[in-house]
Design a protein around this nucleic acid. Structure first.
Lengths: 285, 285
DNA sequence: CTCATTATGTAGTAAATTTACAAAAATATA
DNA sequence: TATATTTTTGTAAATTTACTACATAATGAG
């Protein structure tokens, strides 16, 4: 089954590559998706201002066998509960609308990322992490929190893991790196100067450089392995919200990959770590 | 729209009360529901061994306006039913399966949380944060990274924000709190001793205590306001993965809530913060 | 057994969808 | 710039699909 998880997102993404009348159809559907699932090809054609065959061609372009099949896929996609592609919070929103919007945006971002996971890069990064003697997670701003989260995950693999938010520490550690050291840089844009500089410094050593960042960015250029996660544009203006979620889950994937690499015999080790926390908690009554 | 959660269950339940040919139709649909959504009224009638109008009548009996409408409802019902299943990573998984599983689990966790958002608690927490003179975000382990992330978001609101991972610092800060101070505790279980103790200490002051944790937990008991997000059980044994994502998005919701509270006039302030980062990045070529 | 009621199917009709083809627009080429 | 070629779009006819009205069959009551 190759049914797309979110048909609306796919339509949204391809909006530019459509020709005039197909774009009109796309817009009509995006405007009122639920209605589209209920309307006939004639009424949708009218709503979009195009002819009926244009609607039909549109449907086939998106992998449906025809209009009814398309409606079915659309309905299925909508049923998942994520209504719209990506909706910005507005000042007119109230408590009943904006929380849902934010959750929807987060879900959409993960769905989009999931569709285009760079599996080869991930596999390679797992290899490199599994072999590393020491791993440094470096990020700044929001990505610093992501790096911190990664640290909490990866230290479980018997590999010394370090995080530093201080750019000067990052530079110095990069400079003193050697064989077996792995620097893992996290950055949404891949253009943060001090981080890129740290990567440049590390690059001059024997260390391996992996980055979770935008393809083609200065940071990616410095990396032996770049994991480029498809980032749905953050629609909100001032807070990076969705990109870090994708980063976190991607790091989960890497952690799981390393665990699988270690094999079943590694489970007791993880269990011991888990047990060590037992006494820090109040028991469930 | 009062669409039933599971149309198949409804059909199953009414099976006895149907007359002969309607029962045949019901059986045909129950045997192959997915296929039914794709077939025409003629082929379904053939499959059931009845006439086309019988199928049509069957559809109307179950609240649909006709056969196409029924198919739509059926498809919707099938889609939403399959959604909420999270699957654990197994040692037999390979690179093509486990990344998808992890993303699916993350998506499911967010969808589940979205269904049962504690809007009143969220609204209250927004109120309290918006009025606070000082906000402390405290978490330990994975939640420390979440707290760090929150710090990065909330400092934008002109309110002094602090995070400390050190339990001793947390205790001391809690002890010296006063009116206008808000302690925001983040904990998946709500049972981490040192965190609960810090909350108890803070509780003896004039400070406000908000927590993002499990309902009914010791930590929740200490809080003036507890935001209980529905946590899909982490199926993986050793790494808390999905719960922190829900926490992060919930904090995004709170941040957005505070922004909306501040009103449109606040936008320039946020823009200034954003601009301040401009020179830290390499320009896009 | 007959009548009334309900259930089911037949056939025709209306609607919706698709196909084939032609006109129009856009693009490339001379 | 004019012409040829390709792509896009619409028209109209063909086909498939769904629905309605009505007739027949089955069921049950008196």
């Amino acid at each position: 089954m190759t049914s797309e998880p979110n048909l609306l997102a796919v339509i949204q993404r391809q909006l530019n590559e459509l020709n005039k009348s197909e774009a009109k159809v796309a817009q009509a559907i995006l405007n009122a998706p639920e209605e589209a699932t209920r309307s006939s090809i004639a009424s949708l054609a009218a709503a979009a201002g195009v002819s009926e065959p244009s609607v039909n061609r549109f449907c086939k372009r998106f992998g449906a066998t025809g209009f009814p099949d398309f409606k079915l896929q659309l309905a299925t996609s909508l049923a998942s509960g994520v209504r719209y592609v990506s909706r910005a919070v507005e000042f007119s929103d109230d408590i009943n609308t904006f929380p849902t919007k934010l959750f929807d945006n987060a879900i959409n971002a993960l769905m989009t990322a999931k569709e285009e996971l760079p599996l080869k890069a991930i596999a390679r990064a797992v290899d490199q992490i599994a072999q590393a003697r020491r791993v440094y997670f470096f990020g700044l701003g929001t990505s610093a929190a992501v790096a911190r989260d990664a640290e909490h995950k990866f230290f479980r693999f018997n590999v010394p893991v370090f995080t530093h938010e201080d750019p000067l520490m990052q530079r110095m550690l990069a400079a003193s790196a050697g064989v077996g050291d792995l620097f893992f840089f996290i950055s949404h844009t891949g253009r943060t100067k001090v981080l890129v500089e740290a990567a440049e410094i590390a690059r001059q050593t024997e260390a391996t450089i992996v980055s979770l960042t935008a393809e083609g960015s200065p940071l990616a250029d410095q990396s032996h392995c770049c994991i480029n996660v498809k980032i749905e544009e953050d629609t909100e203006q001032y807070l990076p919200m969705t990109s870090r979620l994708v980063q976190l889950v991607t790091l989960d994937v890497l952690a799981a990959g390393v665990t699988l690499r270690r094999g079943e015999g590694f489970t007791p080790h993880l269990a011991r770590i888990k047990d060590s926390l037992k006494d820090t908690r109040f028991q469930t009554s």
